[in-house]
Simulated assay, not measured.
Amino acid sequence: MKIREIVVVEGKDDTRAVQRALDADTIETNGSAVSEETLEKIRLAHEKRGVIILTDPDFPGEKIRKTITEHVPDCKHAFIDKKAARAHNGRGIGVEHAAPEAIRIALKDAHLMVEANEENITREDLIDAGLIGGPKAAGRRERLGELLKIGYTNGKQLHKRLMMFRISSQEFAEALEHVLWEEEQ
């Protein structure tokens, strides 16, 4: 399987993992301090073929994603959840540890982030759903992010991502219902 877009990853190990999963070209950021030269490559790739950002589900990965988005808006975003990105020995988390199938699914489900114009889901909705504050909030957010394919976030980021990915109230309600149902099992 070949994809048209160029996949932006953090390093060589991530490139190898992506290429084990499918036929894709990559650009490596080589760490969270993304250089101007790398940003220029990403700009050109976006103009010519499109870009999908696939970074590790951790703080440095989110920093890279944010830096690229500030300089090259309209890139697609793919997320691998923390469980799928965990090393077998438990000593690391990243794209390089993900199974080929997890990478294929993440790239297939890539989203385009857009400026949030309308608020379908309010912060109060997130509090009422037990996604902000409370003992189960972090676990619920993690599972919700997996189901909606928007990655793991803290409470503040969750609201922003729901708006940026234009998750509808219905999509949110269905995913939340599934999360709550799983808790009861």
Rank of each mutant, 00 (worst) to 15 (best):
E70M: 14
R49S: 10
A45S: 07
I150Y: 09
I127F: 14
I93F: 03
E142T: 12
F79E: 10
G134V: 01
T153R: 12
N30T: 09
E101T: 05
C75F: 02
V34G: 01
E62R: 15
D74H: 09
I27G: 04
K41N: 04
E124P: 00
Y152G: 09
R141N: 06
L131H: 04
G31P: 03
N117A: 10
H46R: 12
K48C: 00
N89R: 09
D81I: 06
H77C: 07
N154G: 13
C75D: 04
I52V: 15
L147H: 08
T153L: 04
E28I: 14
V51W: 01
D74M: 06
G151N: 08
M113F: 10
I105K: 13
T69E: 15
N154P: 08
K108E: 12
E101D: 14
L144N: 06
K149Q: 14
L112F: 10
A85M: 08
G151I: 13
R65N: 11
I150T: 07
V95W: 04
K63H: 13
I68C: 06
D58P: 11
I27M: 04
R86V: 10
R43I: 03
G92K: 13
L107F: 11
A45T: 04
A137Y: 07
D109V: 09
A106S: 12
A84F: 00
D81T: 11
T67F: 00
A102N: 03
T122E: 01
R123E: 09
A45F: 01
A85N: 08
K76V: 02
H77S: 03
V34E: 00
E118H: 14
N89V: 05
R123F: 09
R65T: 11
G61P: 08
V51C: 07
I68G: 10
I68S: 09
R86A: 14
